[in-house]
Design a protein around this nucleic acid. Structure first.
Length: 104
DNA sequence: GCTTTGACTCTCG
DNA sequence: TCGAGAGCCAAAG
């Protein structure tokens, strides 16, 4: 299975109204390809299907979005995730720890 | 195949 | 608290 497809599968597991980090996604993959995760999502082939907007930076910052950060924020807030100045409020509570699907 | 490119993360001053 | 620098990895050129 391709690297990006694993990401796709993992990201789908994030429940609505919760967020996760690039690091956590990479961790679920069993590696530390934080940047590769973002890179894969950037040109993500599953754009409408995968909720890539639920992925944020490890420090709670929103990060970026292929269609624009504002769009990402809007989608998150629509799901109940409050965002202030590009950062997720109560990030620790919103954070969803991904299970390790793929062992190293 | 080697080089470049990011929606990243960590460390240090 | 904030910014710069280095390290990191897969994909695309």
């Amino acid at each position: 299975m391709r690297f990006s497809e694993k990401i796709y599968k993992i990201v789908k597991k994030i429940p609505k109204g919760r967020v996760s980090t690039y690091k956590s996604v990479a961790g679920a993959l069993g590696c530390k390809a934080y940047r590769a995760v973002g890179n894969a999502l950037n040109k993500n082939p599953y754009w409408p299907k995968v909720c890539c907007h639920r992925i944020v930076c490890s420090d709670g910052k929103v990060g970026g979005f292929a269609r624009g950060v504002k769009e990402k924020v809007r989608l998150l807030e629509k799901e109940g995730v409050r965002i202030k100045k590009g950062k997720v409020l109560s990030f620790e509570k919103m954070f969803y720890k991904l299970p390790k699907l793929y062992k190293h």
